[in-house]
Write a protein that binds this DNA or RNA. Sequence first.
DNA 1: TTGACGCGTAAGCATTTGCTGACGTATACT
DNA 2: AGTATACGTCAGCAAATGCTTACGCGTCAA
Lengths: 110, 110
Amino acid sequence: MVATANIPADVFSAISHPARRTMLDLLAHADHSAGAIAGHFEMSRPAVSQHLRILLDAGLVTEQRHGRERRYHFVPEQLSVVRDWLAHYERFWDDHLQRLQKTLAKKKKS
Amino acid sequence: MVATANIPADVFSAISHPARRTMLDLLAHADHSAGAIAGHFEMSRPAVSQHLRILLDAGLVTEQRHGRERRYHFVPEQLSVVRDWLAHYERFWDDHLQRLQKTLAKKKKS
DNA sequence: TTGACGCGTAAGCATTTGCTGACGTATACT
DNA sequence: AGTATACGTCAGCAAATGCTTACGCGTCAA
């Protein structure tokens, strides 16, 4: 077996560019073709294609060939990396989840 | 009034570098001096200083001069930008309680 | 089968990022 | 005063990023 690097590209880097976040927002609403996505941006279509590639490598989207189109589909699972990282800081906020966590923790202990 | 750009540097960019996320993790635990932070990394102290500057510009930390030291302090508020963005995708995951129960269950097992 | 369409890739370029060693500036120590 | 400490800033440089135009390849339509 060849040692093919299977490490997904960094999700944090992938979402660091505003255009890519906009793309994810678009795709979270519905699947779109590359051309349809490009229609939402000022930049050239190849530039959009390159951004999509980065999202693809990060595992944040998948592509499905459909005739001569490529339809992109949002994959939320990879965002859990960010989610989990943020969870480290939950204790700094005081929202529902936080209170819930405390409550449950107390119950578990008793 | 002079048009001074008061826009904080992009939080998403700031957290895109693993070293900076590690720094935030460190600071979330306790305040640290620049030297203490540098002690946790292989890179040169100036490099650390530059990373801290980026975190500072993003509003993720504050610095407080203490004698000849500079003590850095974690500021969680700015992370809400990320938090809010992620919230768009909440509907793609299990709801909070369910997830929390799973998490706690795992901790209990270990 | 010829031509238009949809889309990725390649090449080239400017800009940004991340790092290093050298240096400057305070503060503290003796 | 003189020296050491803590730390930022300044070149300078290699590598990565983001964009563009040119091109190639598969798919659909006439």
